[in-house]
Design a protein around this nucleic acid. Sequence first.
DNA 1: ATAAAGCCTAAACAAACGTTTGATTAACAG
DNA 2: CTGTTAATCAAACGTTTGTTTAGGCTTTAT
Lengths: 222, 222
Amino acid sequence: MIMTSKIENQPKKLKAGERILIAAELAFAKDGFERPSLRDITAAADVNLASVSYYYGSRDGLVDAVIIRAAKRWNVARIQQLDRCLSEAGGAPVAVEKIVACVVDPILDEAKESEDGGGYLGSLLGRSMTDPSSRMPDEVGAVYAEVMRRFDEALTRSAPHLERREIFWRLFFGVGAMLRIFTQGDLLNPASGGRSGEPDWEWIRCQLIRFVTGGIEAKSTK
Amino acid sequence: MIMTSKIENQPKKLKAGERILIAAELAFAKDGFERPSLRDITAAADVNLASVSYYYGSRDGLVDAVIIRAAKRWNVARIQQLDRCLSEAGGAPVAVEKIVACVVDPILDEAKESEDGGGYLGSLLGRSMTDPSSRMPDEVGAVYAEVMRRFDEALTRSAPHLERREIFWRLFFGVGAMLRIFTQGDLLNPASGGRSGEPDWEWIRCQLIRFVTGGIEAKSTK
DNA sequence: ATAAAGCCTAAACAAACGTTTGATTAACAG
DNA sequence: CTGTTAATCAAACGTTTGTTTAGGCTTTAT
């Protein structure tokens, strides 16, 4: 018989490899790359423990896969948004503020839309760049290099007062400022400073972009 | 006999509790709060494994102790430097740049002087604020609150264009920018961007301070 | 239908972990 | 000295870890 085996193939039923990836991404973002055990992850994904070895070879392989997937997703979105800005400007330099937005928006958007409101997925980025256990896989290093090259190119035109290495470091600092939103646990929740009911993503975004833009536009140390 | 028991009490021979703390601080800064095992740490400290339980109750207790020790050290230095600036200004508002220096210098100085050049001790701060496993102990939360209050007070006078919550968030971003120096592993080493022989701490410090100052002085979103 | 490949699973593996124990040694007070 | 407390130690405890095994099930191709 044909129909008996699987009743339906609705979106709920992904293959084990995918389900692991999704569960692992959430677990790593929440608790770091070290703490979640494969038993935790596979239980959440509702797959067998051995599937991790089958699909990713080892736990480290799974960590790499999660990082690669997220990094590509973010960096593709960054370059797309930058290209859009560049074509809109039609040859003229793009405002620094807009370039900064291209760097941070893909991350903030994803965090904003994350249903648990905590920006777990955004915090994954923070961890993937800060955790000692996350050795940057070569595959994703190349993607970052390309992104860096593109933004360096754009800022060379939009912030001509800066030296080359200053552009690099100030972008670097800007990313650090953004990561801080995610890596400080329960700061987006109420009771921090003001009694804001829920994290006001748009306000924070404005604040971040203005801060980073101000930092980049600050005068050179030449 | 009296003299036979201990030949000398030179600085090399600290008590086990201290030696654990020192070894653990280095290990946690290098590899995060999760990875180093108590066997690694006690071996490096040249003490018995059970000493951790004896002095700190548990592994979590040791993590807390390391964080508390470092956080107090840094925050005391920050407030001291701020007080010095305030008294030098003699009632007038202190330049934003100087306030920023008070926040970052205690960390940068310690990293600079760290013999292995990698700023491991500075990276400990980054981890203590980013790692999911490092729940901020209450004892150190109070210290941070005091530091925050003092710097908020100073910036209210030196950056009067900002709302209260803007001051908070921009300081927050500034710390994130600083942390980035430490949490990106081998970026301070050569082969990154320029072929600088060794990390030029003074240049990086200037760059960081200028970036953060520019971010804080950027116009309000009011 | 039969074979082959891909996918999934329960069970077991050895290794490493944090913690506890009980005994031994050092420090010190009366 | 004697007695008491603090500090250190080797050894073992019970869990939990990532990984492997061997086999069953499903799908695809011949």
